[in-house]
Design a protein around this nucleic acid. Structure first.
Lengths: 140, 140
DNA sequence: TCATACTTGACTATCTTGATCATGTTTGTA
DNA sequence: TACAAACATGATCAAGATAGTCAAGTATGA
């Protein structure tokens, strides 16, 4: 489970849209990049992927932008990471020895442990914590 | 926690040496590469790192090779992965927003979960399972 | 009609990973 | 002593991923 900048940005964008899902107007890319310091054209790429996944919808033309098209309680950080990150971590060759096999099981187990953590982080939970503030806020 | 081929090879080499730690003679690189299908010059690099870490010692000259210089019960897959893998996963920039910070905590939590798994895998345990055989052997 | 804003595809630079090569140095043995 | 086996070291390289950019086009509200 590799968390690249791309995945991080995708999650930020989804959370940003979720936060403004009550607004009537869609959110422009420019707003998102300004708020989170994401390189503009890079976010365009990422939003394209999110749109393909069916999690955001775009409104073209003037006053256009993006809108979340999924319930934030229905999607987790794991969902986003896997949709953006692409490559499966178990792209290993079939083991040739017992030692190889045993080691591979440990790598898989480790990857599964981190996936479990991310699978429990719903966007709605993170929004909740962000809105109501928790201990981490005091460090900023 | 990224498990690269380098880390995988390092663990295989350590386990191979541990398995033959009763022998009087050191184990030649060639033997290890043959048994585990590791590219020769690549393993040389890896063994250099392991020697720097103080976990193996080399014997030069004819009849030379490598020997484990640590108790297999004292070292885990996490130790090896961190010694070989080099880069810390928390090499992220300091968060600029609350959302950024919250997300970062989740990434850290996920990484910690996989580290915990690897920290519990001692080389001696793996050797034991390999020697006595377990369910996974039947799949080979 | 025009500015705003998304769409698409191609493109580039940098880094990491996996791997190789050449040239040593050390040491047992014939 | 000569020689071959075996480790030591540093340089180098190719492929792929990552992060990010650019340019040309399309849709739409005002």
């Amino acid at each position: 489970m590799v968390i690249s900048a791309r995945v991080h940005y995708a999650c930020l964008a989804m959370l940003d849209l979720a936060m403004r899902s009550d607004d009537a107007a869609p959110v422009a890319i420019r707003e998102i990049t300004d708020r989170h310091n994401i390189p503009g054209p890079f976010l365009v790429q990422i939003l394209r992927t999110l749109r393909t996944a069916g999690w955001v919808q775009s409104v073209r033309g003037s006053q256009g932008g993006y809108r979340l098209s999924i319930d934030p309680a229905q999607i987790t950080l794991l969902d986003i990471a896997e949709a953006i990150g692409c490559q499966e971590s178990s792209s290993r060759a079939t083991p040739t020895t017992v030692l190889d096999e045993l080691l591979g099981e440990h790598w898989d187990e480790a990857a599964a442990a981190s996936r479990r953590v991310l699978a429990e982080a719903r966007l709605s939970d993170i929004l909740e914590r962000c809105r109501h503030g928790d201990a981490s806020m005091f460090y900023i």
